[in-house]
């Protein structure tokens, strides 16, 4: 038997995972269908709320195990992100938003590797967009309220630029602040989750295909290798999922801080 994969292909051929598979409806049709990611996101919401309320209902000086765990997540968000970036004066107002964003995203991302769920709602672009909308509306509203329309636009141009270049920079800044920032905020998260999940699917379905639907010893080896790779990628994914939740929260705090800052 030759080593060429083509020689060993059976009648059925391997179909790599495609984006269409991310649309998994339960009932309803098209744009108004009720989908699996929605169920998962609802689970995320219920779990996050239940866990946080349960562990903090009797918040004490000496924390219980649950409260301790919650505080281990809360403290870095409160102090490491909100206080450090927004500043000690006003950060407390925005801690709920940032904490909610982080908890929701973390669990949504981790849904990718939690058995039985194994699908990240954040791999559907609607959910990153939903969270981004909250952040976007809040940071734009703060900026307009604090600086006024003219003040906001003025604050976008860094002082000391030559006069002739300012209009072009203003266009660039407006596009960046109003379009690029929210779009990249949402798409960065979505892209990471989407691609990560695709990669896992590819290694798992590919491994399964080679192991079960292919003849030839080398395919068994490749299949096992593919599964091992999937395990490795899963570990890597967990890291990415933490990181993306963190980055999203960090950037949200940065945008809010930018809106609060009086001088630019």
């Amino acid at each position: 038997m030759s080593f060429s994969p083509l020689a060993a292909v059976k009648t059925e051929s391997f179909e790599p995972p495609n984006p269409q598979e991310f649309y998994q409806r339960f009932f309803g049709h098209g744009d108004w269908s009720f989908t699996r990611p929605m169920v998962l996101f609802l689970v995320v919401g219920v779990v996050v709320c239940t866990f946080l309320v349960m562990t903090t209902r009797k918040a004490a000086i000496v924390p219980s195990k649950g409260q301790w765990l919650t505080e281990q997540v809360y403290a870095p968000i409160r102090n490491g992100i909100a206080q450090d970036i927004i500043g000690t004066k006003e950060f407390l107002k925005y801690v709920p938003l940032l904490f909610a964003v982080f908890c929701t995203l973390l669990l949504s991302n981790l849904m990718s590797v939690i058995p039985f769920f194994q699908f990240p709602p954040t791999g559907r672009v609607a959910f990153p967009i939903a969270l981004t909308l909250f952040v976007y509306v809040i940071y734009q509203a703060i900026a307009f309220k604090r600086k006024g329309v003219v003040g906001y636009l003025k604050s976008l141009i860094p002082p000391g630029l030559p006069m002739w270049i300012r209009p072009m920079i203003l266009v660039l800044e407006i596009i960046t602040y109003f379009i690029t920032r929210p779009v990249t905020l949402a798409l960065r998260l979505f892209g990471n989750m989407f691609a990560g999940h695709m990669l896992l699917l590819l290694f798992i379905t590919g491994g399964e295909f080679m192991l079960l639907h292919q003849d030839g010893f080398q395919y068994k080896i490749f299949g096992i290798g593919s599964f091992l790779m999937a395990v490795l990628m899963t570990l890597f994914e967990i890291l990415i999922e933490f990181l993306q939740a963190y980055i999203f929260t960090l950037l949200a705090a940065t945008y809010i801080a930018d809106s609060i800052a009086t001088e630019h």
């Binding site: 649309y23 108004w32 269908s33 989908t35 996050v48 908890c103 609607a126």
Partner: peptide, 18 residues
């Protein structure tokens, strides 16, 4: 490009969490 039901559902659920 988002699916509308998911987007609205996401907004509502996240509003609840928040």
């Amino acid at each position: 490009l988002p699916q509308w039901s998911e987007l609205i559902f996401g907004l509502v659920v996240f509003a609840g969490i928040l």
